[in-house]
């Protein structure tokens, strides 16, 4: 619980307030932290933004797993920089979420306790070096599709954090695609490695856009309030359309026998996503859910001395300054 906000119950919302708010949204205005907003809008944003922030932080783990084993110094420098960026992304979004009145401590506690959700994609393991390439290509590629649209979200701080993030994601995607392209033009074993990684990551990447429109309980409201601008299915289609030619260009097959170009719509038709698998991973039974949470907790606990040292150092400096002044 956040004592700051638990103090007073929010005043009742009037129809006039809601109408004025929705008129602002309809007029394309951005909502800023101190503006009036329906409690429901605030709650939905806190849920969505904190999950997004957690995803950036947990997303550091599967890739961090390969830093010590990157095949060259160039790849290693790149991977360190990328993982650090993801930490930065988490930071931008946590800050933006704090403007809604939830504390950082609370969000971190919810992540560590397992109460909070994050993107299911990060509950899959990174088995080979090719996975690092495919994550950059697919996972960051999907994130770009999502975040480019969220950069126009109606909540100002969220939109601004997305703009900052989008500027950094292109590097993430390109380095991943480069890894894949190099492997795909390499030896038989390298080609097999990248194809195997593509086979494992393709469907979970499509799941990143969330459940289909028919079974996405929050979508309608988020679209109406222009937090989202396109539905999950629309964005998923956009991602598929972008990715198919990229796969063809490096001669890698996407693992979907139903994949075919539909000239009438201009879309690549794709097969059914296995939503049972999706819900199973969301509910905590993915291949790495427990491992990720344990790793996050370990990192947090092992960082305790750094936080304590920073506080002690600041206190001592403040003390020295005070006695010098006396």
């Amino acid at each position: 619980m956040t004592p700051t906000n638990a103090a007073a119950p929010p005043p009742p919302e009037t129809a006039e307030q809601l109408a004025a708010f929705e008129a602002r949204i309809a007029a394309g205005e951005y909502i800023e932290p101190k503006d009036w907003m329906p409690e429901r809008y605030r709650k939905q944003l806190i849920r969505m933004m904190s999950q997004h922030a957690h995803s950036e932080i947990v997303g550091m783990l599967p890739e961090g797993n390969w830093i010590t084993r990157a095949p060259s110094l160039r790849r290693k420098m790149t991977l360190i920089a990328k993982v650090q960026d993801e930490g930065g992304h988490g930071h931008y979004i946590y800050c933006a979420t704090e403007t809604l009145g939830v504390s950082r401590d609370q969000m971190v506690a919810d992540l560590l306790s397992g109460k909070a959700k994050y993107s299911s994609i990060f509950n899959y393991p990174t088995l080979t070096w090719a996975d690092i390439g495919v994550i950059g290509w697919f996972v960051d590629g999907a994130a770009i599709v999502n975040q480019t649209v969220l950069a126009k979200a109606s909540y100002g701080p969220y939109a601004r954090s997305m703009i900052r993030i989008c500027k950094e994601e292109n590097f993430h995607k390109r380095q991943g695609y480069e890894i894949c392209a190099v492997l795909a033009s390499g030896t038989e074993a390298q080609r097999a490695m990248v194809q195997d990684a593509v086979n494992r990551w393709w469907w979970p990447s499509l799941m990143m856009f969330g459940p289909g429109d028919a079974s996405s309980p929050n979508s309608e409201e988020l679209l109406r309030w222009k937090v989202k601008r396109f539905s999950n299915d629309e964005l998923r289609q956009r991602f598929v359309n972008l990715t198919v030619p990229q796969a063809q260009a490096i001669d890698v097959a996407l693992p979907d026998p139903e994949l075919r170009y539909d000239a009438a719509s201009g879309d690549w038709h794709f097969g059914q996503v296995d939503w049972n698998e999706f819900w199973q991973v969301v509910k905590g039974d993915g291949p790495c859910n427990r491992e990720r949470l344990a790793a996050r907790n370990k990192a947090h606990d092992e960082g305790a001395w750094v936080r304590a040292a920073a506080e002690a150092y600041a206190a001592r400096r403040a003390g020295a300054a005070a006695s010098a002044a006396a």
Binding site: T4, E32, P33, K34, Y92, C95, A96, E98, T99, G101, G156, P157, R160, S161
Partner: peptide, 9 residues
């Protein structure tokens, strides 16, 4: 990005 200075500690 706490644009809200009054958000407080």
């Amino acid at each position: 990005m706490a644009d809200d200075a009054s958000n407080g500690a």
